[in-house]
Each structure stands twice: as structure tokens, then as C-alpha cells.
Nucleic acid binder design. Structure first.
Length: 304
DNA sequence: TTCCAGGGGTAGA
DNA sequence: TCTACCCATGGA
């Protein structure tokens, strides 16, 4: 086992980022609530399959990353793992403009105080899209089951678990074979088509990371993906640190009803009006309200 | 049996 | 833009 020390940005907070939503318990991530360790299996670019476990190292203002699966890490492998960790924990995300907005509203000052706002994301946009698709019109429990069965199509790690399968791996299956394994219902065909479009070069989700690319252009490409409607687009945009869409789902609507609207159900239009003052940050503001409600980060909710 | 879940596609107005 | 209806899956 090799331990890497990874420096984090000054305003980075480990726990609010790792538990920013349910991704931390979807393989190839796993989360140990007792130790707050975040673990992930990854196939490095030279084919080495590693398992790395991230812990906060507050004394060093950074992270401690324990890497297993390779006797001695090369500099290139260590660099790759550092880049993956930085990406998954949204190191490069600048929240200062959002925090400036929240300082004007007493109900939202807690966000900057605890250092929330960064989202846990996957190393590839493909993985985030696939997982987002598997959250649509289903329960969190079933999402976890579908993702577990999906990663069983990835590369196995000797001591257990799998890496996330590549688009090419999924595209190489027939839609029927894919769904025989994943049991994703009607979503299976959408997932297969997404993998096919990426692996054959018709869709390049990684290009969406370019911050110079207007969000409207990203949304146009997302809308063309079967299975991606308003919720999935908003959720996927949030993981790309673009918060222009609300991405409302049943969790958001329930939160709004119970904690903001005095128990009264609101239309999506009314919810949108409430978050309008947050402008381009509204998608993050609504998710922070969900987090404050604590339905998403509580162990029961994650493990149900 | 029916309902519904971190909804979305399609057809028709 | 809106509504009605359909869509696999599995737990309640």
C-alpha cells in the first residue's frame, strides 16, 4: 500500500463534499460512515486496477490517499490518481460568487460556514450520465441495485469489486444482454444507446467540461439523450458545476413542501420563482436546501 | 391488487 | 406549452 498526500484548496471541506449526494455509496465508490473514508476502484490508463481510500488530513490541510493493488506506484500512476481525486472532489470549483449570494440570506449562511457546495462527481462524465439515468423514475434502493449490477460488467479488482464499465464495454453488448444483467427496465435501451453514441464518437460528454462552452449548448446535447428530461439534465448539469437548471425531483419537491412552503405542495413554476434570486446558482441552492433537510446524507437514506 | 419511486417519451391538442 | 397515456422494475 502506498499513501499519497494530496493538497486541497483552502476553502475545501472534505465531509460536505463526499456526502453532497448519494454518489458516495454507488460503486465503484463506497463510503464508510464510521471512518468517513471514501473508497474507489479505478482502472488507470496503463491498465492497472487500483483501490484507493481517501481520508481527510486536516492537520496537513489536505487528504491522505491510500492506494492498494500495486506494489510500487510510478510517478505517472500517482499523478493520475491525484488528478482523479481532484476531479471527483471538485477541487477546481470556485464557489465564492455563490457564497456571496448566500451571505445576503440568513437561511443560507450555513452553506459557507460548513463549506458545502462542492459535489462529489465521477472521473468521467459518462459515469455520471449513466448513474443519473438510473436514478430516473425509480427508488434510491433500486438505483443502487441497478448500478451494482452495471459495475459487474467492469473490470474486477482482485480483492473484490469492479471498476465502472467503459462505454465501449457496454456498447459491445446487445441491449437485451445488457438488461439481462442490469435489469434497468425501459432505461436499459437508453443506457445502451448512450454508450453506443459515446463509443462511436457521436457524443463527447467530456467536451462539456469546457467552461467556455455555453450552458445552452450543453443542454441541447443532453436533451438529445434518450431518458434525459428536465430532472436528469438539471442533475447532470449540477455535477458539471453548472447550476442554471433546478433538476427538480420528488426529493426536491418534498423538501420544498415541508421545509419552505409550510406543508403546502407547490408547482414547479412556484418552486422556480422561489429560487430565481439565486440566478445561475439556483440549481445549487435547491440542492443545498435538500441537504439541509438531511434526507440525502443520512445513513438511513443512503443505505435504504 | 394498486401505487409509486431522486421521470421521460410520444402523440395530440 | 399542456395533458394523457405508456413505459420495466420491485418494494410497500
Amino acid at each position: 500500500m502506498t499513501v499519497l498526500r494530496v493538497a486541497a484548496p483552502p476553502d475545501f471541506r472534505y465531509l460536505p463534499t463526499v456526502t453532497s449526494h448519494g454518489w458516495c455509496v454507488l460503486p465503484p465508490f463506497s463510503y464508510d460512515e464510521a471512518t468517513t473514508a471514501l473508497t474507489r476502484l479505478e482502472s488507470l490508463s496503463n491498465g492497472t486496477v487500483v483501490r484507493f481510500t481517501i481520508l481527510s488530513d486536516e492537520a496537513a490541510d489536505g487528504l491522505r490517499v491510500a492506494v492498494e493493488g500495486v506494489d510500487k506506484l510510478t510517478d505517472a500512476q500517482a499523478g493520475e490518481i491525484r488528478r482523479i481525486v481532484a476531479r471527483c472532489l471538485s477541487f477546481d470549483h470556485d464557489l465564492s460568487a455563490f457564497y456571496a449570494l448566500t451571505r445576503e440570506r440568513p437561511d443560507y449562511v450555513w452553506i459557507e460556514r460548513v463549506g458545502a457546495g462542492r459535489m462529489l462527481v465521477s472521473p468521467t462524465v459518462w459515469e455520471d450520465l449513466a448513474k443519473t439515468l438510473l436514478t430516473t423514475n425509480t427508488t434510491w434502493r433500486q438505483t443502487k441495485g441497478m448500478v451494482q449490477r452495471l459495475v459487474e460488467l467492469g473490470i474486477p479488482y482482485a480483492q473484490g469489486g469492479y471498476t465502472f464499465p467503459t462505454p465501449a464495454t457496454i456498447a459491445a453488448l446487445t441491449p437485451e444482454a445488457l438488461n439481462a444483467q442490469v435489469r434497468a427496465g425501459y432505461r436499459g435501451a437508453y443506457l445502451h444507446q448512450l454508450a453506443l453514441d459515446i463509443s462511436e464518437g457521436r457524443l463527447d460528454p467530456e467536451s462539456w467540461r469546457d467552461t467556455a462552452l455555453p450552458v445552452k449548448d450543453v443542454m441541447r446535447e443532453m436533451k438529445a439523450i434518450k431518458g434525459f428530461g428536465p430532472y436528469a439534465i438539471g442533475a447532470a448539469l449540477r455535477l458539471l458545476a453548472r447550476f442554471d437548471e433546478l433538476g427538480l425531483d420528488s426529493v426536491c419537491r418534498t423538501m420544498f413542501k415541508t421545509t419552505i412552503n409550510q406543508g403546502h405542495a407547490a408547482t414547479d413554476r412556484e418552486i422556480a420563482a422561489y429560487y430565481e434570486p439565486f440566478g445561475a446558482w439556483r440549481g445549487l441552492a435547491v440542492w443545498m436546501d435538500v441537504l439541509r433537510d438531511d434526507d440525502v446524507t443520512e445513513t438511513d437514506a443512503l443505505n435504504c
